[in-house]
């Protein structure tokens, strides 16, 4: 059946353009938030049933609390020594799995002083609900 199909071609072009736009935007932001600044301090995060422990670059260790400085960049190296956990700071949209045998990394820069929650976001056993820690951001 003969018919004009210019409208179909416009439709296809618009769909392709939208998909490219969505993909490019998402890729751009993904790159931006994954690219760690050079001067980021490395914090080793260890998850285990049912608490968090942290080790700073200078060897200082903390359990259940993490003290950071405002407007500094931090790169978390997250690992688990028992089951799967998930390291989450809701206020700063930090969310990454802690998997036994792997080190996952994520970076962020706190831009607000105060106390914030750190929690486990992957069901990890009986006391998962209370696997929490405090993030204390100091205005230095």
């Amino acid at each position: 059946m003969g018919h004009s199909n210019w409208a179909e071609w416009i439709y296809v072009a618009v769909v392709i353009a939208l998909l490219v736009y969505v993909g490019a935007e998402a890729w751009n932001i993904e790159n931006l938030i994954e690219h760690t600044p050079e001067d980021a301090e490395i914090i080793k995060v260890t998850a285990q049933q049912w608490f968090w422990s942290f080790e700073h670059e200078d060897g200082t260790k903390e359990v259940g609390e993490l003290h950071l400085k405002k407007d500094h960049a931090y790169k978390f190296e997250i690992r688990s020594i028992d089951v799967n956990h998930n390291f989450n700071i809701p206020e700063y949209v930090v969310l990454l799995d802690a998997i036994p045998g792997r080190i996952n990394t994520v970076w962020f820069s706190p831009n607000q002083a105060g106390e914030f929650d750190i929690q486990c976001r992957e069901y990890c056993g009986l006391i998962h609900y209370n696997m929490r820690a405090k993030l204390i951001v100091e205005d230095v």
Partner: peptide, 22 residues
């Protein structure tokens, strides 16, 4: 849009993660 995506090479700066994602 493609050039916008390739422009991301200049990252590595401090960003407000929450603002970017939202």
């Amino acid at each position: 849009t493609v050039s916008l995506a390739f422009a991301a090479e200049s990252a590595g700066e401090y960003i407000d993660r929450k603002a970017e994602i939202w």
